[in-house]
């Protein structure tokens, strides 16, 4: 199986509004994919559909398996720890993950915690947005999954931490695993992306290898991404 993800004719409506329409998307194993698009374009929704947290129509196969329940054991998603009370200590959250996910690697988690400079004796409620995001990243990467979905992992994070997160992604992503990173702010992650998927107009507007964009158009990922929106404006 060389495709870690195969989405077919995926449509999602919420509150009578169509968010995504007839989406087809295939991702190969071992890639780092940038999922780009404006706020509200449907990036998070697409990830939630893949994990099964949102329910749409169409088929989604993860590692060749299209049963939604089975996806959970293949996917590691940056969930925002809403199931925990604010007074829960980080090490207790880690214990929860260790207990519940058979692929949670305690050793890796320790390394990540050290690398990202996280104090596990802190309580969730006491964390800044950036610190909480680092905790979420550490938990997500500590699992040995086939597909990692990182939903805006850099929001609210200072540039030093951002660099560390990017490094930890390169360091700890298993070689045959694919990682999808959503963001609306490209420049800093551009060098680590194999491919770029752009969500626009309720669908996948473009899906290209990032070095192909540089070769074909002679422009950067960010410029390419912005050009899609400028063209859109001219069309209107």
């Amino acid at each position: 199986m060389t495709n870690v993800l195969a989405i077919n004719q995926l449509t999602y409506k919420h509150n009578l509004k169509t968010i995504l329409k007839d989406v087809d998307l295939t991702l190969e194993t071992g890639k780092i994919v940038g999922l780009l698009g404006e706020n509200g374009a449907g990036k998070t929704t697409l990830m939630r559909l893949i994990t099964g947290s949102a329910k749409g129509s169409g088929t989604i196969a993860v590692c060749g398996d299209s049963v939604a329940t089975h996806h959970k054991s293949h996917i590691s998603f940056t969930e925002q720890l809403r199931g925990f009370k604010p007074n829960t200590r980080i090490d207790r959250v880690a214990n929860f993950y260790r207990t519940v996910y058979p692929d949670f690697d305690g050793q890796r988690f320790e390394e990540l915690i050290t690398f990202l400079q996280i104090d596990t004796s802190l309580k969730l409620g006491a964390l800044s947005k950036g610190m909480k995001e680092k905790v979420v990243i550490a938990l997500t990467l500590a699992r040995q999954a086939q597909l990692y979905l990182l939903d805006e992992p850099f929001s609210g994070i200072d540039s030093m931490s951002r660099k560390r997160i990017i490094s930890s992604i390169i360091k700890w992503k298993p070689e045959d695993a694919t990682m999808v990173i959503s963001d609306h702010y490209v420049s800093e992650i551009a060098p680590i992306l194999d491919e770029v998927v752009i969500v626009k107009d309720q669908g996948i507007y473009a899906h290209k290898p990032s070095d192909a964009i540089r070769e074909e158009f002679g422009i950067g990922i960010e410029a390419y991404y912005e050009s899609l929106y400028e063209r859109g404006v001219k069309h209107d």
Binding site: I32, I170, I192
Partner: peptide, 17 residues
């Protein structure tokens, strides 16, 4: 390869290429 990727902050696949 991975160390190079980390040092240069780039993707492992790109280093490999």
């Amino acid at each position: 390869v991975r160390q190079l990727a980390v040092d240069l902050t780039v993707n492992v696949n790109t280093v490999q290429r």
